[in-house]
Amino acid sequence: MSGQKRGESTEQTHISYFLDDIRYQGKSERTQAAYERVLSDFKEYLASRSLTLESANHRDCMAYIHQLRGDVASSTVATYASYLHRFYDYMTRVDAFEDNPMAIVVEELDESINTDPTRRDISIEAMHSFVETLSHPLDRAVILTLLKTGIRAGELCNLDIRDISLSSSPIEGSHRPRLDGRRDSMYVDSAPAQGVTYNGEKRAASNKRKRATTIPVDGELADVLREWLAIRPDPISDASPLFVSVSDEWGRRISPAIVHHLVETHARDFGWYRAGGGPEENVTPHYFRHFFTTHLRDRTGDRGVVKYLRGDVAKDVIDTYTHDWGNRVREEYEKNIYSLI
């Protein structure tokens, strides 16, 4: 991006170009003024914290949105978020910024405002075609794990090698005692919390499930995980994260923002993601949890098993399925989990 006006900061130049763009698109003067007002307020908020529009990450954006609550209506908060999301999407499209930190914020905001949106209806056959487009072992492992287990992006990021019991694993490492006798399975704890040290590493995301859960790993997911582990870089953390970056932050635990960007990129290429689109049409990491819940529930007819796997049921139900894990959970899962490869 070039053409900075004399006396105008780089920050203001970014905003000016964006405002020019929406003006060329025919947005009214009132809408243009609203965008400018929001962007200026956000820029001042970041400056007070020695941050810039380009350096802000999703946490900074979330903090800005959070401090709006109580001062303006929830609908206004959503509008501010959508304006910032569109601005960052534009900046990434013109290669001014590397990523859109508002993407994950908007997804979480949408989920909090509308807990049960009418979502895009994707068949198993269509999802199979989508998975076939994934070529990199990390992308395949991340997306198939989300699709086959229904875990959240933060829960996926918090997985360590000890949380996986995988037969014929290409790397050495002992699993948790909780996984003893449970072949090809994954343990998703409820304990990890943002900013808290867990397994020797301070975590950037929280596991939101009410109870720890052991989830079966079927043959397809096991194969994809083995493919990923065969090329996985040595992790920087002694916690030995299951999923680490293969790009700029080589060997570091991946973050929810990275997972969201990965999913958004592939969904956009497949026609399943539109800038400014809501949860009704966009495929995001949370959509895969919806896909898992819907299709597995329809196939099993057993809401209890699905609720157990999601980790969002009461203790008495958890205990029922925990005690009968081998016979009921694994059998129901293996009998009904869909094939995507």
Rank of each mutant, 00 (worst) to 15 (best):
S168W: 09
T92L: 08
L84P: 02
Y321W: 00
R37K: 13
G26A: 05
A314N: 15
L53M: 08
V305L: 03
S28T: 13
M102I: 10
E54V: 05
S206L: 03
S339N: 10
G304K: 01
M102V: 07
K208Q: 13
S82Q: 14
G301N: 06
N327L: 05
F243G: 01
S129L: 10
T265C: 11
S245Q: 10
S190H: 10
A153C: 12
H261L: 11
H261C: 08
W325N: 06
Y321C: 07
S167W: 07
K315V: 14
I113R: 14
Q12F: 09
P279Q: 13
M127S: 07
V142T: 06
L179W: 01
P241I: 03
T149S: 11
L46N: 00
D238E: 15
V72S: 03
A34N: 06
R289T: 10
L53Q: 01
L225V: 02
T265G: 15
E331D: 15
I15D: 09
T265Q: 14
R182N: 12
E36I: 02
D139E: 13
I124D: 13
A212V: 01
R59M: 08
E201R: 13
R49E: 00
A73G: 10
E332Y: 02
R152E: 11
I104T: 08
S169W: 02
V72Q: 09
R328K: 12
A257Y: 00
I104Q: 00
D99Y: 09
A78W: 06
V188K: 08
V263S: 05
V244R: 02
L138V: 02
Y83G: 04
W228E: 03
R328Y: 06
S240I: 10
S129D: 12
G326D: 13
L138M: 12
F18L: 11
G200I: 04
H136K: 10
L225K: 01
A78P: 01
E201H: 12
V106C: 12
R176D: 11
Y35S: 08
T92I: 13
I143Y: 00
D110T: 09
N158Y: 04
E331F: 13
V263R: 06
Q67R: 15
F270L: 03
A205T: 10
V196W: 08
D218A: 08
G154I: 09
G7W: 05
D110W: 13
A191P: 01
F87E: 08
F130Y: 13
G278M: 08
P137I: 03
A314T: 13
V317A: 08
T322D: 11
R330M: 09
I318C: 07
A314E: 15
T76A: 12
Q32V: 11
E201Q: 14
E155I: 07
V305W: 00
Y35H: 15
Y45Q: 04
G173N: 06
T293L: 05
H290Q: 09
K148A: 08
E249N: 15
R330N: 08
G181W: 07
R328W: 04
P285M: 09
N327K: 10
R232M: 04
V329H: 02
R59D: 03
S129V: 09
A205R: 08
L229R: 01
L225D: 02
R226H: 05
E331L: 08
N336A: 12
P137V: 04
T300I: 07
R203K: 14
T213W: 04
K43G: 00
L156G: 00
R93D: 14
F291Y: 06
S255D: 09
N158M: 02
G26P: 02
T293C: 05
S48V: 00
S82Y: 05
A230I: 05
